[in-house]
């Protein structure tokens, strides 16, 4: 039980870490770039730059990171009690 819980706890912390990173990226580009006066915006694929980086690149990066942490750090554990040693 303890071993499986340790794995679960570590993965939950990874989830909190990802969400924090996600928030900082989203907020930083949205209000860092988007906070300039509107005349200074540049446009990528026709979209305002702050939006492009915050929402489109941000989404792609989060998808990549979720894939990465699942591939690297997430472990397969049994949910049943068999083979359980305290």
């Amino acid at each position: 039980m303890n071993k499986r819980f340790q794995i679960a706890h570590r993965e939950a912390w990874i989830g909190i870490g990802l969400a924090l990173f996600n928030f900082i990226w989203w907020f930083g580009f949205a209000y860092g770039l988007g906070g300039r006066s509107m005349e200074e915006y540049s446009y990528i694929w026709g979209l305002p730059d702050w939006f492009f980086y915050s929402c489109i690149v941000g989404f792609v990066i989060m998808t990549f990171l979720v894939w990465l942490v699942v591939a690297l750090f997430f472990k397969n554990v049994s949910f049943e009690e068999e083979g359980d040693s305290e």
Partner: peptide
């Protein structure tokens, strides 16, 4: 408002990662 709506991307991984394996194991227990 799209910026606001995109805060929801986090739900795609956060809920399952937080409840995660612990919830799956405990509810079976």
């Amino acid at each position: 408002w799209i910026l606001l709506a995109m805060t929801q991307v986090v739900t795609g991984y956060f809920v399952l990662m937080i409840l995660g394996k612990k919830f799956a194991i405990v509810t079976r227990l």
